[in-house]
């Protein structure tokens, strides 16, 4: 330990209540992603409440192959190329104009980050009571950040609208929502 041990320096022994007993706080996925977004230069962030239970919300959003083409207007298809461990993926995303981009992904309940050579994306959700979900989303460009920032911001607003409509439709058994 240190050269000036507690006993010798103050004359009284250290507090010993056993290891691992001090209070610990945990950070939920939304708080974690907020912190992560703070480290992405010129990242565009957005956050909203959805009137959907967390489990149903993440069942939909976390199914990247199915949900991403429906939420992201510019995406034509998503294919999982590789699964590594419990939470790592490699994805290929094809856009409507025919370009392809490969993403490294970390996917856990309520938490997803994606990174390619061109872009970074983060999605996180946490329950707000039994019937609502808080959703946080960020996107950032690797290059031309100033130029692409307003486009990303507009894109995220559109994604949120689409996501809200899709979730309403999913929860309406008649499919008319």
């Amino acid at each position: 330990m240190n050269s000036d041990t507690p006993d010798t320096m103050t004359g009284d022994p250290p507090i010993d209540v056993g290891s691992g007993t001090w209070p610990v706080v945990e950070i939920d996925p939304v708080a974690k992603l907020r912190a992560l977004a703070a480290g992405i230069p010129l990242a565009v962030v957005d956050e909203a409440l959805f009137d959907v239970p967390f489990e149903r919300f993440w069942d939909f959003v976390g199914d990247l192959e199915k949900s991403t083409p429906r939420i992201e207007g510019s995406v034509h298809g998503v294919r999982i190329l590789e699964r590594r461990g419990d939470d790592r993926l490699r994805l290929e995303i094809r856009t409507l104009i025919g370009t392809r981009d490969e993403f490294e992904v970390v996917l856990r309940p309520g938490y997803c980050i994606m990174q390619s050579g061109r872009a970074v994306v983060g999605m996180a959700a946490r329950p707000e009571g039994p019937h609502r979900t808080r959703y946080f989303h960020f996107e950032g460009a690797r290059r031309f950040r100033w130029f692409l920032r307003p486009i990303l911001a507009w894109n995220i607003r559109q994604d949120f609208r689409r996501l809200r409509r899709l979730l309403e439709r999913e929860s309406d058994p008649t499919g008319r929502a």
């Binding site: 209070p23 706080v25 950070i27 708080a31 974690k32």
Partner: peptide, 13 residues
């Protein structure tokens, strides 16, 4: 603690 931890991580990142 949760607020302090989040603020810490924001500053760190």
């Amino acid at each position: 603690g949760p607020d302090a931890a989040q603020e810490t991580l924001i500053q760190v990142m």
